[in-house]
Write a protein that binds this DNA or RNA. Structure first.
Lengths: 307, 307
DNA sequence: CTGAGATATGATTCAAACTCATTATTCTAA
DNA sequence: TTAGAATAATGAGTTTGAATCATATCTCAG
């Protein structure tokens, strides 16, 4: 008698339905594609019937799979809620959760995530550290923040734990009438003669600069704006080009105000991590915050993928 | 980070709440007491808090334990229902389920169990094989029954699978004014001069005879009645003594019509098993029947314990 | 027909979950 | 109070099964 149904399986099914393929779901669950394949196989042999049809994209659930999926949708939230209740009961009221943010556009996804979190953990004092610190890790050490959102994998840091959030792509934005819009994708040199519209922050906090232009020793003319919408307005008006995460600009592209082009032949991919003190990494209310922002970003933001 | 909550844990908590002790719950779950102790310990270390207080009988749940228990009560039925739906979907409509019964008083628990089962599996054709076959196993072989309720562990039988149901105690019953009521428990010799009131079936199907009197070569005078209530009436009227499972007589004892005494110093314990053909043992609707009758008997019948 | 993207498979690794044997803790009753 | 019966805890040892890794197979678009 092979192993019975477990919560793990329900999580798999849910991820599967949201990702549409074994490999994507595996990435989201921090497992290998092989693991999911095996898992699914034992489940199917347990029930003596297929749960999904895998030769269709996205994969389709059989009737039986559907039934189990609906069980997952029913049960997993209940389990999660109980988990939160238990955490609350176990550790008394939670402490403050001060979040240090490195990048401007992080606000776009952080705000809704924080809203969702606030309703689940009303007693946690949520706060955002104002100002844009280039290196937020010392804040964690000094106990001035519980969590920092940072770019790219960092060198291991004593007393700091990094948890992957997600991967996104930075795309170049320009007016549809801009000459560069003719190219299928942009190279470093294409930026040379242009005006680059960015947030008013140091270069090492701008994805294009840090990963492409600074290494290529290219330093285009600059213009800055605080707000994403302002940057997009300037781009749409032909005042220059910008580079932003693909998910910030969906609306503007749909409406034809601006067009986007990959940066480099294979796109400019950036990674976000949550950093916490080793202590904080064990606190349930902080773990939950990370899990929730990650999950929410992965489902809500277009063009974002698991790390 | 120790293992997360799994359905297995919920089952443990539920069993724990119903049995009131680690060891009893372990028996019900077909696990060792040690297993449950370890399991509970890892769960508690996972949450960093105790789930139950074990130095009280029956054990008590802490607030956290209560919360998880209520999760279990919420989730497990949902999981079970999904399991049934899947089984239905997987194997089309279920076949007939003909139950052969060896003992009269099995009806007392079999009927309510069958009622419960019928509402869960309406499409299964439930049937009881009439007449009391001494050896019902050939019925399984000949495909004339899908399931047989039998006494005591049997020698391994080709193509037949035995699943434990429960253990009960047969007690001696007599009028409160009967001389033997003075003894704390009865021995084989005590039966010698008495009239034994039984069902009208062969001796080897009567627990007292098979396990005590026949081995001791004692053969008391007999009187028979078809119905349990009739037997109890005769006993209450001082027409003789009887030996019945302890759970059949709760009402009569409470009202003082009859009294019960253990048979032998340590009581006469009997065991019931469900026998199915190897094929049937794999069919979900039959497995479910066994699990359900077992569970229901264990919770509903007083003085019944897991095997 | 080929190559890219996705899934399957088998061998291997590793940790979790059990059992077994034993000891510690209660609780009960002599 | 102590002996003895239940019950729980513990530690070592074993088994199981869920992962990973490396590789093979499949499917489809160009």
């Amino acid at each position: 008698m092979p192993s019975a149904l477990e919560i793990r399986h329900l999580e798999t099914l849910l991820a599967l339905s949201e990702c549409g393929s074994l490999s994507k779901a595996a990435a989201r669950l921090f497992l290998t594609q092989s693991a999911l394949s095996h898992q699914l196989k034992t489940l199917e042999s347990h029930y003596g019937a297929a749960l999904v049809e895998k030769n269709t994209r996205p994969l389709r659930f059989t009737a039986i799979g559907q039934r189990l999926l609906s069980l997952a949708r029913q049960v997993l939230p209940q389990v999660a809620e109980a988990g939160r209740d238990v955490a609350r009961l176990a550790q008394g009221h939670a402490g403050p959760l001060r979040v240090a943010v490195q990048c401007h556009n992080c606000f776009d996804w952080l705000m809704p995530a924080m809203d969702a979190y606030r309703s689940l953990w009303p007693e946690v004092e949520l706060d955002i550290i104002s100002g844009f610190v280039v290196d937020p890790l010392p804040l964690l050490d000094r106990g001035e923040a519980e969590l920092a959102v940072i770019h790219d994998p960092q060198a291991p840091h004593p007393n700091v734990v990094f948890s992957p959030l997600f991967r996104y792509e930075s795309v170049a934005l320009m007016s549809p009438r801009h000459p560069l819009a003719a190219k299928p994708h942009l190279e470093a040199q294409d930026f040379a003669g242009e005006t680059l519209i960015t947030y008013p922050v140091p270069d090492e906090m701008l994805d294009v600069m840090k990963h492409l232009l600074t290494p290529a020793n290219i330093n285009p003319k600059r213009r800055t704006a605080e707000l994403t919408v302002a940057i997009l307005q300037l781009v749409a008006s032909g005042r220059g080009i910008a580079a932003l995460p693909s998910w910030t600009v969906g609306n503007y592209i749909e409406r034809g105000y601006v067009v986007s082009r990959p940066i480099g032949a294979s796109g400019l991919r950036c990674e976000l991590y949550a950093a916490t003190s080793t202590a904080g990494a064990h606190a349930a209310y902080i773990k939950e915050f990370i899990a929730l922002t990650r999950a929410q970003s992965l489902t809500e933001l277009a063009g974002v993928s698991a790390l």
